[in-house]
């Protein structure tokens, strides 16, 4: 809302110019579920090899934006271009082919309950390659070692692992196909600080070990943001914005977050509730 703002946002969302270097482009993206508008007029250009962190409070549409990038959420309006191709207009076969170029780490890992860890990590290899089971097994063990897990867990079921281990198995599965773009949906949520730092290190290590890997990370964790980000994008919930306000409050380097002129950005970075406490105080208990 306008009264939160001290001044105009540092950068506003503008239609990006097509660049040969960009791997992902979002043009005037609008996503709506029923009558609920989640994303409005989002414009982004993400160059190859960049690590972009999308921050924002819960319900602002970060995960929806990320799922739109891979075609899991169909945009109400606008375009999402991956390598100059619009995903939703591709045939099933081509879409499947393009999706193998992505790796997606889900918030709760989303491992298949009915499969073992080995089957989970080897799933994309079995689906899209003609590797022998032995070759698949070798790659699985290699990926598990990359994320710091022993080979002995390949026969275990996901339910037998801790949250941090499941996250790392999810990361290993996402890296199995050597993707060009890695999408992380809140990779450190629900983990202890040490395991969160391990995940941050793995994100940095995967970037070092896979040349040209583009990473897009959705998180609330400012520690993760400041540690891994080349660029930070901050979204704001549409319900708290005026009609003419851009949904992207900040788009720039992580160093500029704390000095951003927009008070809402600074509030998020420093973790201050500010006016939200007043809203809490004004809320009436039910039945009164």
């Amino acid at each position: 809302m306008s009264h939160f703002m001290d001044s105009e946002p540092e950068r506003i969302s503008e239609p990006p110019t097509t660049s040969d270097d960009s791997i992902l482009e979002v043009r005037s993206l609008h996503v709506q579920f029923g009558k609920q508008h989640v994303l409005r007029e989002i414009n982004l250009t993400i160059p190859r090899g960049e690590t972009v962190v999308i921050i924002g409070e819960s319900g602002c549409g970060k995960t929806v934006l990320m799922k739109s990038l891979i075609g899991l959420v169909r945009p109400t309006a606008g375009q999402v271009l991956f390598d100059q191709q619009e995903l939703i207009h591709l045939s099933e076969h081509d879409l499947t082919k393009q999706r193998t170029r992505f790796g997606f780490v889900f918030q709760m890992a989303a491992l298949f309950d009915s499969m073992t860890i080995g089957q989970n990590v080897g799933f994309p290899l079995r689906e899209h390659t003609k590797k022998t089971p032995q070759e698949v097994q070798e790659i699985v063990i290699e990926r598990l070692r990359e994320v710091g897990l022993p080979a002995s867990i390949v026969h275990k079921k996901p339910a037998e692992l801790s949250g941090g281990m499941r996250k790392r198995v999810g990361l290993a599965r996402a890296l199995a196909m050597d993707p060009e773009v890695m999408l992380y949906d809140e990779p450190t949520t629900g983990l202890d600080p040490i395991m969160s730092d391990v995940i941050n290190e793995l994100i940095l290590r995967s970037r070092r070990e896979h040349q040209g890997l583009t990473s897009i990370i959705v998180t609330h964790d400012m520690h993760t943001t400041l540690k891994v980000a080349d660029r930070v994008i901050m979204l704001y919930p549409l319900t708290r914005l005026e009609e003419d306000e851009p949904q992207i409050l900040y788009d720039g380097p992580p160093d500029g977050l704390e000095t951003c002129e927009d008070r809402r950005v600074r509030q998020f970075v420093t973790g201050e509730a500010g006016e939200r406490l007043m809203e809490l105080a004004n809320e009436q208990p039910p039945g009164q």
């Binding site: 099933e92 999706r99 997606f104 889900f106 989303a110 298949f112 799933f123 994309p124 689906e127």
Partner: peptide
């Protein structure tokens, strides 16, 4: 339904499996 709720179906789709 559980697979839908826990994003396993999304994971399947994101890995190129229909």
């Amino acid at each position: 339904g559980t697979m839908r709720v826990t994003e396993q179906i999304d994971a399947l789709t994101s890995m190129g499996a229909n």
